[in-house]
């Protein structure tokens, strides 16, 4: 254990950094695209089912296959990995945003409009805060997925903790496999915990009856 840290300590820090970087960018892109899209879908009469199904189909593509598809388009390195992970992050966020926005009571929406909120004000001041817990749950789920799957990004040269695991597999070195896997698990748990804190903050302080 100590031996592992003295040998690979600095490398481990660097890999965790890479891993976080890839995951964070992918997740951020996912949020930037999926949340507005989800909101937009609730405001459209048609098309919502189609878009959500499409995101679901993308989700079913095996991770390895998706990464492989990215290589001819983006080459190797972190860019194709980020794009692939971004695609994976879309569905949970999109679906939860859509469901969260839909779950806002029609009475609240009617009152918001009837009192003179603009389309935009109604979304920002009424719908979004009320849908926030559900949207955050989607983001947490995506974050866990993305961190876990970022391991595979090492396969196309994006780096990250996957490097340890693949090296360990190639060299039959269980210490390397564990040295890569355990930080991934801890990372996923930590991020989920932190996002849980964020979720608690954005959840409106209201006593539900």
């Amino acid at each position: 254990m100590i031996h592992f840290f003295t040998t690979y300590g600095s490398q481990l820090i660097a890999k965790i950094g890479q891993h976080l970087y890839i995951s964070a960018i992918a997740l951020l892109l996912g949020i930037i695209v999926a949340v507005p899209l989800g909101i937009l879908l609730t405001r459209m009469k048609h098309g919502a089912n189609f878009v959500i199904t499409l995101a679901g189909v993308l989700q079913t593509i095996p991770a390895m296959a998706l990464l492989a598809i990215m290589i001819p388009i983006f080459g190797i390195g972190s860019t194709p990995a980020i794009v692939a992970l971004f695609i994976y992050s879309l569905l949970p966020i999109l679906r939860n945003t859509y469901l969260g926005m839909r779950s806002v009571s029609p009475a609240v929406q009617d009152a918001a409009k009837g009192m003179g909120m603009t389309w935009w004000q109604a979304i920002i001041q009424a719908d979004l805060p009320l849908a926030a817990p559900v949207i955050m749950a989607g983001i947490r789920l995506s974050a866990t997925y993305v961190i876990a799957w970022a391991t595979l990004a090492s396969y196309i040269g994006a780096g990250g903790l996957g490097d340890f695991i693949f090296n360990g597999l190639n060299l039959y070195r269980s210490d390397l496999i564990l040295g890569g896997s355990i930080p991934v698990i801890l990372l996923a748990l930590l991020v989920d915990y932190l996002l849980g804190k964020v979720e608690a903050t954005v959840t409106p302080r209201q006593i539900l009856r």
């Binding site: 609240v108 918001a112 009837g114």
Partner: peptide, 14 residues
């Protein structure tokens, strides 16, 4: 400029 009250009250719960 017009007051509006609905049956389901429509207070903002948050």
């Amino acid at each position: 400029s017009i007051g509006y009250v609905i049956q389901n009250i429509g207070l903002m719960p948050h």
